[in-house]
Amino acid sequence: MPSRAGVTMAGAANREISWPARLAVFAYPLAFILFPLVGFLAYSFFWTEQGQMSYALTLRNYIRFFTDPVFLPVLLQTCILCLEVAGLTVLAGYPVAYFLAGLRGRKRYVLLMLLLVPLLMSYVIKIYAIRSILGGNGVLNRTLLWLGIIDEPLTVFVFNLNAVLLTLTVLLIPFAVLPIFLSLERIPKSLMDASADLGASSLQTFGRVILPLSLPGVVTALTFVFVLAIGDFLTPQMVGGQSGFTFGRIIYSQFGTAFNWPFGAALSVILAIVVIVAIGISAVFGRDRSKPQ
Rank of each mutant, 00 (worst) to 15 (best):
A86D: 01
T89Y: 05
L83D: 09
P95Q: 10
F99C: 05
G87E: 03
L41G: 11
C79F: 01
L41N: 00
L75P: 03
F99K: 01
F65M: 12
L81W: 02
L91P: 01
Y43D: 07
V96I: 13
R106K: 13
G93F: 01
L57E: 05
P73M: 08
L72V: 14
M53W: 13
L100T: 00
F46H: 12
L91N: 05
I80D: 03
S54V: 13
L81A: 05
F99T: 02
A86P: 02
E84H: 08
F99W: 11
L103N: 02
P69S: 09
L115M: 09
T67H: 13
R64V: 05
Q52V: 15
L72R: 02
G102V: 02
N61P: 08
F71N: 08
F65H: 08
F66K: 08
L91M: 13
P69N: 13
T58D: 12
G102N: 12
M53T: 14
G87A: 06
D68P: 00
S44A: 12
T89H: 03
G102A: 04
L75S: 07
F46Y: 15
C82G: 06
Y43N: 10
G93I: 01
L111R: 00
L116S: 02
R60S: 15
G102K: 08
S44T: 09
L91Q: 07
A101D: 03
D68G: 05
W47I: 05
A101K: 04
F46Q: 14
Q50L: 15
V110H: 01
F65N: 08
Y109E: 14
P95E: 10
E49D: 15
K107I: 09
F99L: 10
G105D: 08
F65P: 01
L112W: 06
L75C: 06
T78M: 06
A97P: 02
L100P: 00
G102D: 05
Y94P: 00
L116F: 06
F66Q: 04
L57D: 07
L59R: 10
A92S: 11
Y43A: 13
L75D: 09
L115K: 00
L75Q: 09
A97I: 03
L112D: 00
I63T: 15
R64F: 13
L41Q: 02
G105R: 04
L88A: 11
G87H: 03
S54E: 11
R64A: 10
T78V: 05
C82Q: 05
L100E: 04
L116I: 09
Y62P: 02
A97C: 01
L83G: 12
A42M: 14
L72G: 05
L41A: 14
L41M: 14
L75M: 15
T58I: 08
F46I: 03
L59E: 13
V70Q: 12
A86E: 04
L81V: 05
S54Q: 13
A56W: 11
